[in-house]
Amino acid sequence: MIKFAGLSKIYPDGVQALQDVNLEIQKGEFVVLLGSSGAGKSTLLRCINGLVKPTQGKIEINGIQIGAENNCSLRKLRRQVGMIFQQFNLVRRLRVLDNVLCGRLSYSPVWSSCCRFFPRQDVKLAMSCLERVGLKEKAYQRADQLSGGQQQRVGIARALAQQPEILLADEPVASLDPKSSRSIMETLLEINHQDKITVIVSLHDVELAMKYARRVVGICDGQVVMDRPITQVGEKELEDIYGERPANKETGGAGLFREIEYACALSRVN
């Protein structure tokens, strides 16, 4: 379980990215953080793995408070938390397999891994992660030769190689075409189902959020303005049958969007 209590972040340049965020995310949930760019979604995600240090408040993961640890325990925390990024952030000049092996770095002794040596079982695990995202045959190509959607799959494989408990995805499909976007979101959903990994995805696309989220947290100006489960399971099943979402997709998405806008406007007035 991840628990945020009174979390605030003010960047050195004075930008208030988060403002008194209180949130609980249960193990195994699939949560979408929804909000426009600059709303504070990325900052919130980065607080979970310590890439951003909050100025106030605290975060607990499985009852253990994070934030006060030294480098060593921070690395141990980070390896339980996989992360994928909008720009994929692969090491472009390395092979795909090496990129996935980067997910094993925190488990490897520093000196041997710096000589590019990985235990055989790590290589095996990396290959199986690549197989899961359907890129096993690309293992020995350079990462920058792959398409955007494929690169994001490598990003997912790298995160899986960490064998994480939590997977953070920061605008994972914002740089991708609609087809790749859907397949990336489905992969994330599948990982959430099969591995019971908690998945937290930040999105700005309402339709995608409606389609894949079990729970949507609306964020605006660094505050949580909406938090509700998406309970139309029946619709999701219908979708499996028809391959498309039934007619009310327009109203559903637009309605949710309007609701966030409204909450946002309200919070600004207050």
């Binding site: 690395r75 952030n89 472009r92």
Partner: peptide
């Protein structure tokens, strides 16, 4: 590219590993 460095740090890699895998190839 700072994104690559951030991604490697997010995996829990040691600073030296970040240099060898993130900085050196670039």
């Amino acid at each position: 590219d700072p994104g690559t460095i951030e991604a490697l740090e997010a995996t829990g890699a040691h600073k030296l590993q970040v240099i060898v895998y993130g900085v050196v190839p670039q």
